[in-house]
Structures are given as C-alpha cells and as structure tokens.
C-alpha cells in the first residue's frame, strides 16, 4: 500500500535498549506516519514507556541506560553528536501518565515552555496561552482562575492543562504515555476526543495498556510483548485480523 499522502516523520531502526544488564527492547523497527495517531499497546512492563522515552531523548538522564540502533526524525539521526537534546524535546513533546503541573499559576504553567524558548512579550504569551488552552477545551473552565494554582483543578483538568502546556511549544510530535492511567471514567473520553482532534495538526504517539482505547483513538498500532514488537500495522487490521497468535490473544483479552 503506497499512498501519496502517507509520509514517515519518525523511523525507528533496529532499536535495542538495556538498563544495566537487562534488555528492555529487542530489535524494534517501525515508522511513525505524519499527522496520524500511532498507538503502542502491550501488557505492563513490555517496554512501551522505555521506547517512547528514547524518542525524545528523555532516557539521556537515566542511569545505566544504553541502546543501539537508529532513530531518524525527518531523516536526521536524533542521537547524532551535533543534535541538541533540548531542541529535540521541544519538537517531540510528551504528556505523562500522572498530570504534574508545575508549582505556579495555571497561566505560568502554559507559558513556561514558550518562555524558556525565548518568547517574553506578554501580548504573545497571552495569545499562546489562550490558544493552547482553547485547543484542549479548558479555556472556558479556567479563564477566571488563570492566576490560581492548578491544585484546584480536577485530575482530568490537570491532565488537559499538561497537554496545553506541551502544545504551547508547538511540537511536531506529541507523545502520550498512558495519559488516562490516572483519570476516572468520566474524564477519559474527553482526553480521547482531544487526541483524535489534535491529529489534524500534530503527529501523535499514544501509549496505552487498554486495548479498546487504542482501537478507538489510533490509526496505526504496534503490539509490544516482552520488549519485542510482535506486530505493527493499521489499527483496524491489527485488531480484526492479527497475524500473530500472541497479538490475537492480547486483543481478545486472554493475554496480559
């Protein structure tokens, strides 16, 4: 299937990763398509988080971490010596499982990213903050309390605030590492809807251990099992016609 519209933005080639002696990722290769949602599914401790943390170089700070293989972002090696890691993380943002707003006002939370990248006129910051908060559907809820602390928000609102914070730096790719893991069932659909909506402007990578969630939000899906990428392909195909027996067991809920 070669369509003109499809375009790879990130390619992972023969990625192996270790923490100390323990191998976490075994020979992974796949492509992430521009402006699509790519889901990574699998039982817990399969290496999903390790994998996505390689993609924005967050593992740089992890002790005893080492890897082999290549990760190409727009054709450039992410780990090449002249590549600035902070630049990478600005272009490949991340939203974590647990929403962790900074200890400052809601406004400053969203403005943090633009501020550190050099935006300092209040007119522009105001515009960015409003745009980002509108994008995640939080503007109307928080407009009167922009100077208040994020502690007053519900967990779901905090998570959307964290998404807005990540959007404020205008990344190309946004990684979601189990963004609904801490949310209650009422908040989850909002975040899922947001993910589908963001697809128009961003490339999204979505880690989850809930298969139905992956089926709902993603266009492509990869199934990780004990550090190996067992199967990767269009979500629909992976869920309805899996090629590997383990994938089938997983999507039907027998495994993991």
């Amino acid at each position: 299937m070669k369509s003109e519209k499809k375009q790879s933005i990130l390619s992972i080639r023969k990625l192996n990763a270790w923490y100390g002696d323990r191998q976490i990722l075994i020979n992974l290769s796949f492509e992430v398509q521009r402006r699509q949602v790519t889901a990574l599914i699998g039982p817990s401790n399969s290496g999903k988080s390790t994998l996505v943390r390689c993609l924005n170089r967050l593992n740089d700070f992890t002790l005893n971490f080492r890897f082999t293989g290549e990760i190409l972002f727009k054709g450039r090696d992410l780990y090449a010596s002249m590549v600035d890691a902070t630049e990478v993380r600005m272009q490949i943002g991340m939203v974590f499982r647990k929403p962790i707003p900074f200890r400052c006002s809601i406004y400053e939370n969203v403005a943090y990213g633009p501020r550190i990248s050099g935006v300092n006129t209040s007119v522009r910051l105001d515009a960015i903050v409003e745009k980002s908060l509108r994008r995640v559907g939080l503007w109307d809820e928080v407009e009167p309390i922009l100077d208040g602390t994020p502690d007053e928000l519900s967990i779901g609102q905090q998570q959307r605030l964290c998404i807005a914070r990540a959007l404020a730096v205008e990344p190309d790719i946004l990684i979601f590492d189990e963004p609904c893991g801490e949310l209650d069932p009422m908040e989850t659909p909002k975040v899922e809807a947001l993910v589908r909506n963001l697809k128009a402007d961003y490339t999204l990578i979505f880690v989850t251990n809930k298969r139905r969630q992956a089926a709902r939000v993603s266009d492509f899906a990869g199934f990780l099992y004990c550090g190996e990428l067992i199967e990767f392909g269009a979500t629909e195909k992976l869920f309805t016609n899996p090629q590997d027996i383990r994938t089938e067991q997983y999507v039907t809920g027998k495994l993991g």
Partner: peptide, 10 residues
C-alpha cells in the same frame, strides 16, 4: 517534575 520540564525543551 524534572522530566515534565525537560519534555518541554528546558
């Protein structure tokens, strides 16, 4: 907290 800041390109 550190990681969230790093992830924003700090």
């Amino acid at each position: 907290i550190r990681e969230s800041a790093y992830a924003l390109g700090a």
